[in-house]
Design a protein around this nucleic acid. Structure first.
Lengths: 216, 216
DNA sequence: CACGTTACGTAACGGTGTTACTCAATCAAC
DNA sequence: GTTGATTGAGTAACACCGTTACGTAACGTG
């Protein structure tokens, strides 16, 4: 009654090989044949393990969201909640720059590559905002931000941050102001937009930058 | 010495057919064979007219930027420069929603679909910001914004707006706050972030909304 | 040990972008 | 008006893609 079991090692091997293929040449470089060759198996393995390329990409996206969540969770809360928010933004951007191709698959509205990402997959990445929402709530309690729903404020910040990362990865932020300058300007604008004082925001920005260099 | 000339009608016919193919089914639906069939020609025509699919997509992107620029240029300057900026943002978003697939090709860092967009193509879309830069300069002169480089401020706004549109098209803005709510919140946050008073920004927002409904 | 179940390899199908090769249509020159 | 060079566009092929029907061999159970 119990037949040959699926090999979990092969599943993870496929995922890892797919990740490095995508990391090296983007989604366009991810093909069943090259994937099978990299793992030393056959193309049908992709179907027994995932049921097609779409699901494999979906699994990669889940892994990407998990990694992003892990990275955002490493940011510790301090007395300066605004600086915490900036540190979270820095972590978000750093994760995207470390895995640019994966980020584009996660948020590139994957219709482009032909791969389908379901609504469920998108919702799966929603809890990633949790640390940001909490930091915004703390900044609001501390009187740095105007009263308002922390979720909406956090979502506004996430949207702007995604715009920055997306355009940076696309190579659009080079002209007179490079991505670093735009990032700092964006963070400051977001804090002031949420209600913080401009000078206080600049001060928190310096604090967050110091924290970042201390990490390195 | 003078041979058979290229047919300009076929060039535009190819572009139009490609545009409607992309509009209907995304970049994935744009193939040489289907394109040739739609125009009633052969696949080689794509190569004599454009030199490959990449260049055809590039031409479509140029057209997309031109259309975006045209649409942004229809926004007239009024006494309320902040309301003008919001109207520009509305025009930007409306254009993206009218041509979602094209927008994704323009800014989706087209490496995803396998098509290549050069740095020159990206710079080509830079002048689109011009109307926004001017409106920001006027808002700064009027004392609504903190003193600063209008280009950097405009670029910050563009980045955030792109983030909103990108996530909206990707279907990420549904949960508790839909895209409309996020858009209004984003605009208000941007104005306040640039230095405007919060209540003044809300007032200008209402003014811009009235202007929009007057257009319809 | 034998059986049933199922993962995996082989090979094929229909699709893709791209390109030699060919032909026919055009315009310049006389 | 005829000729001839030039070149756009059609045919067919190549290599590649995702996917799948089929066969086989390996496994867990009885």
């Amino acid at each position: 009654m119990s037949p040959r079991r699926i090999d979990p090692k092969l599943t993870t091997a496929l995922l890892e090989a797919a990740a490095s293929l995508v990391a090296e040449e983007g989604v366009a470089g991810l093909t069943t044949r090259r994937l099978a060759a990299a793992v030393g198996t056959s193309t049908t393995a992709v179907y027994t393990h995932f049921g097609g390329m779409d699901n494999l990409v979906r699994a990669m996206v889940h892994e990407g969201f998990a990694r992003l969540h892990r990275r955002m969770s490493t940011v510790r809360a301090t007395a300066d909640a605004v600086a915490d928010i900036m540190a979270l933004g820095t972590a978000y951007r750093a994760n995207a720059l470390d895995h640019p191709q994966l980020y584009q698959v996660m948020f590139g509205s994957a219709a482009l590559g032909g791969f389908a990402i379901t609504d469920g997959d998108r919702q799966h990445g929603r809890y990633t905002l949790q640390p940001l929402v909490e930091a915004v709530a703390r900044a609001t309690e501390q009187g740095r931000f105007r009263p308002g729903d922390p979720l909406l404020v956090a979502q506004t910040m996430w949207i702007a941050l995604h715009g920055l990362v997306s355009l940076e990865l696309g190579g659009y932020l080079t002209d007179p102001y490079d991505a670093d300058v735009c990032f700092e300007a964006q963070l400051c604008s977001l804090m002031v937009g949420a209600g913080d004082d401009h000078e206080a925001a600049c001060l928190s920005s310096r604090r967050a930058r110091r924290r970042r260099s201390a990490h390195a």
